[in-house]
Amino acid sequence: MAKIVNYISDAFEELKSNVTWPEWAEVQKLTITVAVFSIIFALATWGVDELFAKSIAGFFNWLKP
Rank of each mutant, 00 (worst) to 15 (best):
A11Y: 13
K16H: 11
D10P: 01
V48I: 15
E13S: 12
I4V: 14
E50L: 15
D49L: 14
E26L: 11
E23D: 12
K64F: 08
W24A: 14
L15Q: 04
A2Y: 02
T20Q: 13
W21C: 01
E14Q: 11
I56C: 06
A25S: 12
S38T: 07
K29M: 11
T33P: 00
A25H: 09
A53N: 13
D10C: 03
A11V: 08
A25P: 00
P22R: 00
Q28E: 14
S17N: 13
I39A: 14
E14R: 12
W24T: 12
E13P: 00
G58T: 01
L63A: 10
L63T: 04
F41T: 14
F52G: 01
A25K: 10
E13L: 13
V36M: 09
D10R: 03
D10W: 02
I56M: 11
F12A: 03
M1S: 05
L63H: 06
F37T: 13
K54A: 13
K29I: 09
I40W: 02
K64Y: 04
T33G: 11
A25G: 08
F37C: 06
E26V: 09
K29F: 08
F41M: 10
I32L: 09
I4F: 12
T45E: 08
F60C: 01
A44L: 11
W21S: 02
F41C: 09
I40L: 08
A35Y: 08
E13I: 10
W24K: 14
A2R: 04
V36Y: 03
S9C: 01
M1C: 05
F41R: 04
W21V: 07
K64N: 03
S9L: 02
K29T: 12
V34S: 10
A42C: 12
E50Y: 12
K3C: 05
A2I: 03
T20Y: 02
I39H: 07
V48W: 12
F37D: 13
E23F: 05
N61G: 02
A25L: 04
N61L: 03
K64R: 07
P65L: 13
F12E: 04
P22T: 00
V34C: 08
K54S: 13
V36S: 05
K64W: 06
L43D: 00
L51D: 05
L51A: 14
T20M: 05
I32G: 00
E14C: 09
T45K: 06
T45Q: 05
W21Q: 03
I56R: 15
S55E: 11
V34A: 15
K54Q: 15
V5K: 12
I39L: 14
A44Y: 01
L30R: 15
Q28R: 14
A25E: 15
F12N: 05
S38P: 00
W21A: 03
M1F: 00
L15V: 02
P65H: 10
K54R: 15
F37N: 14
K16E: 15
K3N: 14
F52M: 07
E23T: 13
V34W: 09
